[in-house]
């Protein structure tokens, strides 16, 4: 739809990019552009200013242990503007380490408690064993016609175990895989427009409905429900995305 624009901020793309996190940003960008929504990706990293009014969607990805520590320090400097963005209801996609930072705290392998941003009520504890593998999880936020349309697929690889506070909704319920902690069947967390997940890298390209949900939320926030509905009414082609998603579901579920 003409006249609409979405600005996407990719936070720390040079540090938190372990698992193809660029894919999430690319998926958002392309699916906006295919709807004739003007879209742009702006990288913001260490020492850069983060202006909360500038960005409709913010993506933060997964990283290695030592880079996460560097990022945590920098985020404290940006805390006010980040909190402003969250308070304004901007759409956030936080993957893996990016997710852990959004929680209340993280207990590392030395038993040290590292403060998070506290944007969402969950906490994370390090564990010796790494959770890894393909995941199929049911996400009721993404609608569809057929049964398995609500299934999201992804790949998890994390040693932290995350526990959701009371009343915090997971992003999805795990059907195959370990999810947040391997015990309670939850995967990720969602509060308002903050989407957190351990399904890293190419979560959005693998799940076009989730991509469209994020774009829709951003449009609602910026232009209101009616304009958003109009812009989203025309869905760009998704045949190959669905082929890949269904291929993954059938290989993992059976």
């Amino acid at each position: 739809m003409d006249g609409l624009s979405i600005r996407i901020c990719h936070l720390y793309p040079d540090l938190l990019n372990t698992y193809g996190d660029k894919g999430n940003v690319t998926a958002l960008l392309k699916r906006c552009q295919w709807r004739n929504i003007e879209a742009e990706v702006v990288p913001v990293s260490l020492g850069d200013a983060f202006d909360p009014d500038q960005y409709d969607i913010v993506c933060i990805g997964g990283g290695q242990e030592r880079e996460r520590a560097t990022v945590c320090q920098d985020m404290i400097d940006k805390a006010d503007s980040i909190k402003a963005s969250l308070a304004q209801g901007k759409v956030w996609l936080c993957i893996s380490s990016g997710m852990q930072i959004m929680g209340k705290y993280y207990v590392n392998s030395q038993g040290e408690k590292i403060q998070g941003l506290g944007a969402v009520d969950f906490w994370t504890e390090a564990s010796k064993n790494k959770i890894q593998g393909d995941v199929v999880a049911e996400c009721n936020l993404v609608g569809g016609v057929e049964d398995q349309d609500t299934y999201v697929v992804g790949f998890e690889s994390h040693s932290g175990r995350t526990y959701l506070g009371e009343g915090v909704e997971p992003l999805a319920k795990v059907l195959v895989g370990q999810g947040n902690n391997g015990t309670d069947g939850t995967e990720g967390a969602v509060v308002g427009n903050i989407f957190c997940s351990y399904l890293h890298g190419s979560l959005l390209p693998k799940n076009y409905r989730l991509t469209d949900l994020l774009i829709s939320r951003a449009l609602v926030g910026k232009y209101g429900q009616e304009v958003a509905d109009q812009a989203m009414a025309n869905t760009p082609d998704f045949a190959v995305e669905e082929l890949a998603r269904k291929g993954c579901i059938s290989r993992v579920l059976h």
């Binding site: 990019n17 698992y19 193809g20 996190d21 660029k22 894919g23 690319t26 890894q132 593998g133 393909d134 790949f155 690889s157 890293h200 890298g201 190419s202 390209p205």
Partner: peptide, 9 residues
């Protein structure tokens, strides 16, 4: 390699 997310890199 069972994880293919690097395709996006």
């Amino acid at each position: 390699g069972v994880d293919i997310s690097w395709l996006w890199d």
